[in-house]
Amino acid sequence: ARSKEVVAPPGEHPLQYRYTFWYSRRTPSRPASTHNYEQNIRQFGTVATVEQFWRVYSHLVRPGDLSGYSDFHLFKEGIKPMWEDDANRNGGKWIIRLRKGLASRFWENIILAMLGEQFMVGEEICGVVVSIRFQEDILSIWNKTANDQISTIRIRDTLRRVLNLPPNTIMEYKTHNDSLKDNSSFRNTKLTL
């Protein structure tokens, strides 16, 4: 029923997929269990066109202006930004660590690449996340099939291009299965140059 509310009004430019924005925030001292993660995450808008996207996005706080321990997520409609979701169960994510001050620009660029279908990996992309932390900020892009090497490498190379990353930028990949095992999003990743 929710899908029917989000239609493309005349004159607007449809996106290949509909996307939902989510926001989450938690107290870093509390360990993240699935239960409290689900309680702390809220969706606040679904968009189907380029123009709808800008209407929502332009009213958001820029991630670089957020304080504390918070995340913005933009995921395809119907996919929850959780490791356990059916679309994510066999997936994983690329992680890019950003020094403070870069998150807002990189977040916008990764979103525009996803909405514009720049990754060319079929149905593989699930969504993107910007995670605001104390020492650094982290950008992630989630895909469906962690062991699909052709897609994960293509996603990595597209990221380098659309974010204009220096060639020596370290890229990290972590499967959601590993995240579930060590209950951590960003520790124990596989590094590649």
Partner: peptide, 21 residues
């Protein structure tokens, strides 16, 4: 089927459209 592909400039240009306000 065909994919709807937009480059960054196209998307940024739509930001100022009256429909996006």
């Amino acid at each position: 089927g065909t994919r709807i592909i937009y480059d960054r400039k196209f998307l940024l240009d739509r930001r100022n459209s009256p429909l996006a306000q």
